[in-house]
Design a protein around this nucleic acid. Structure first.
Length: 566
RNA sequence: CGGGGCGUAGCGCAGCCUGGUAGCGCACCUGCCUUGGGCGCAGGGGGUCGCCAGUUCGAAUCUGGCCGCCCCGACCA
């Protein structure tokens, strides 16, 4: 295509509101423009790149028997009420009413709709298995859209759904999606890692996320460099580090001591000259309207995801100061488990086997020493702790790292939640009704592009993988008013097209510097420059990533690019 | 939703404190010039100063309210 005819509004300066690299470059390179918070127009370049990503996704989904569909984005409330998610989704779902006052919503995902299609039509086990997918716009009323295309209110998702007669079938569908996702992200040129994930509001058992390591991300993942264990921090497990010093021996009785003004773990640690690992941290939570006392080792953090799963109330909260005072007779900072009778006590496994620790005395400015779980109080033991960097891997004793990541894909074994709630049944070979088991599998299309930019950029702009770049090569005559250069550029451009390359001809009447800067900014992998060397029949082939330049003959330029693209 | 910041031309910003003509750079248009990393010269177009109200002879500037956007936190298939 001819650059002079295209709308590619590049900016010389960085837009003020863009912080993360991908956001800044998408705006500067003329890929996107913002309409409103979390709503972006995808201009020509972005659309080309997104279409390439979608084409890769389609090819790979079709290769495992996926059948593409197109479903409504506007859904009646009833269908979400049937699955129970009308209430669960809360404010994250866009809701509206039609002219008759009927409740509708904009789809955040399509489990309900796919299941509704299936239950109307799938009658026999012979119809299974099925993999259905779509690549469509999803809507989420995010509390805080941010970071350009990373967290938006309207975005493209490939979501597929598998229907199988039994667990083995689901396992196979899950496994083939896992492998397909690896192929898709490989082809898109991403560096990514599959990690064990928490299945969240989707429900279901097994789940993996496909994560790209990036400071722009919002998810934290624990990774073991030695054995490859990796899991979302919401779910990750580890061996706690060894306590700073061994516990005092013996069957000692709790003993009160004065700790004036020492409220935090760190303050009590400094005051007692004992490491934080010698303390019990007491947190007061409110779940289902009732208080719960949570105990952790002093240096550990509560995993809210794990806690929420145990109390099965996603709406739990921390207790207010007035509630704490009423229940404990003391303020936060002097709380402990000894003598607590009016609420359940949940203790983290890291406290098992520990003896004679420090805890709050439930009396302002006092703590207890020699507190032992199982002797001085009883508690339910659970895994409540959030893994921290430096913890030991449970599988191999290696050290765990914690990385910031962006989620580009997520696969779930849904189980029977939707088929059961929504009445999807087929007849089995034995003539009895059976409930199909489902899986659901998503890919954030824009996030593939965003992550590629986060991973691959330099001071001059994007360095996109050729498979998802809007064009593969740009042909740049240095001086358009030079007829020979223009003519040679045209010839090479047509040669590239003839070889099936996505080619851009920069025929703009601009100075060479402008064209070079723009080409670098929008991230086209190769550039053929026609300049003064044309006199000796040569042009330059420039690699965007390495900036390395080689001279090639005019007649061979197109083939040289094609060769490099493989 | 809590905390912070910002709203002046398409983009980046100054002016506001101390009220009186709306400015700069880039981009854009015309002409000349130039042609290997965002050239140069000359001329030109473009802004209800986020919105509403108030104070004042007079408001981009002071006061109040509202709206929008960004960042941190909380939240998040």
């Amino acid at each position: 295509m001819l650059w002079s005819k295209l709308f590619i509004p590049t900016l010389r300066e960085d837009p003020a509101e863009a912080e993360v690299a991908s956001h800044r470059l998408l705006l500067r390179a003329g890929y996107i423009r913002q309409l409103s918070a979390g709503l972006y127009s995808y201009l020509f370049l972005a659309q080309r790149s997104l279409l390439k990503i979608q084409a890769i996704v389609r090819e790979e989904m079709n290769a495992i028997g996926g059948q593409e569909m197109h479903l409504p984005a506007l859904h009646p409330a009833e269908i979400w009420q049937e699955s129970g998610r009308w209430d669960i989704m809360g404010d994250n779902m866009f809701r509206l009413k039609d002219r008759f006052g009927r409740d509708l919503c904009l789809g955040m995902t399509h489990e309900e709709i796919m299941t509704a299609v299936a239950r109307g039509e799938l009658r026999s086990y012979k119809h299974l298995p099925q993999i259905w997918y779509q690549i469509q716009t999803k809507f989420r009323d995010e509390q805080r859209p941010k970071s350009g295309l990373l967290r938006v209110r309207q975005f493209l998702m490939k979501d597929s759904y598998s229907f199988d007669i039994d667990q083995a079938g689901l396992d196979a569908a899950y496994d083939s999606h896992y492998k397909t996702y690896c192929r898709i992200f490989d082809r898109c040129g991403l560096k990514y890692m599959p990690v064990e994930a928490h299945s969240g509001a989707m429900g279901g058992s097994q789940s993996h996320e496909f994560m790209v390591i990036s400071d722009a991300g919002e998810d934290f993942v624990a990774v073991c460099k030695d054995c490859g264990y990796s899991a979302n921090l919401e779910k990750a497990v580890s061996k706690p580090s060894t306590p700073g010093i061994a516990d005092p021996e013996g069957d000692l009785a709790p003993e009160e001591f004065h700790t004036p003004g020492r409220k935090t773990i760190a303050e009590v640690s400094a005051f007692t000259k004992l490491p934080e690992t010698s303390q019990m941290k007491s947190l007061v939570m409110v779940a289902d309207g009732k208080p719960v006392l949570v105990l952790l080792r002093g240096d550990h953090q509560l995993s809210e995801t794990k806690f929420g799963a145990i109390v099965s109330d996603p709406e739990f909260r921390t207790a207010r100061p007035d509630e704490i005072l009423a229940w404990f007779g003391a303020e936060a900072g002097s709380l402990g488990p000894v003598g607590v009778k009016n609420m359940p006590i949940l203790a983290d496994q890291a406290l098992a086997g520990r003896r004679n620790m420090i805890a709050g005395a439930n009396k302002d400015d006092y703590h207890l020493r020699n507190v032992t779980l199982g002797e001085d109080f009883e508690a339910e033991m659970h895994d409540l702790r959030q893994v921290g960097a430096g913890d030991e891997c449970l599988r191999c004793d290696g050290k765990l790292d914690v990385c910031k990541t962006v989620e580009v894909g997520h696969i779930f074994k849904l189980g029977y939640k939707y088929s059961e709630n929504m009445g999807l049944r087929v007849l089995g070979a034995d003539g009895k009704e059976l409930t199909p088991i489902m899986g659901s599998y998503g890919i954030g299309i824009e996030r593939v592009l965003t992550c590629a930019i986060e991973l691959y950029h330099d001071k001059d702009g994007m360095v996109l993988p050729a498979s998802i770049a809007p064009f593969q090569v740009v042909v740049t005559p240095a001086n358009c008013s030079d007829a020979a250069q223009s003519q040679a550029a045209r010839t090479i451009y047509e040669g590239c097209l003839a070889l099936g390359l996505d080619t851009l001809l920069d025929d703009r009447d601009e100075r060479p510097g402008v064209k070079f800067k723009d080409a670098d900014l929008i991230g086209i992998p190769f550039r053929i420059v026609i300049g003064k060397k044309l006199g000796s029949g040569m042009v330059e082939l420039v690699d965007r990533k390495t900036k390395q330049t080689v001279d090639v003959a005019v007649a061979e330029a197109a083939a040289a690019v094609a060769g490099r693209l493989g």
